[in-house]
Design a protein around this nucleic acid. Structure first.
Length: 110
DNA sequence: AGGGTGACGATCA
DNA sequence: ATGATCGCCACCC
């Protein structure tokens, strides 16, 4: 009876706010969710989301695609098809970085 | 308890 | 730009 994962939903909630053509970093998502030290967990949670979320819109600091190999290529293609442009291996954050508003405050545990 | 692993991020050589 | 190191944190042995 304890469907865990509730935390994951909270952690990933900001991802749903990123519109097409925009991206946010793992760190930004973590902060917007109220868990500023959990950028790694955002990545971990996205993995678990298994594609049931606009995962391609979350990238590494500086607009870098952190996925390796084929998955990384897919992310890039998905983003480009949404209108996101790159400069070399990185995304033009100047143009596509999404700005979240008022981050929620939260500590380690409730 | 202890150690290894990451779709992180900042810093330094 | 590239690679190493470190801090961080949840997860899985």
């Amino acid at each position: 009876m304890k469907p865990p994962g509730l935390r994951l939903r909270e952690l990933l909630a900001p991802v749903w706010k990123i519109p097409r053509g925009k991206v946010a970093t793992y760190g930004q998502v973590a902060r917007a969710a109220g868990y500023p030290r959990n950028s790694r967990q955002v990545a971990w949670a996205l993995r678990g989301a298994h594609g049931a979320i606009p995962w391609q819109r979350v990238v590494g600091a500086g607009g870098e695609i952190k996925l390796r190999g084929h998955p990384g290529m897919e992310q890039r293609l998905r983003l480009e098809s949404e209108g996101v442009t790159f400069r070399g291996r990185r995304i033009n954050m100047r143009l596509h970085e999404f700005q979240f508003e008022a981050p929620k405050q939260r500590r380690k545990s409730t």
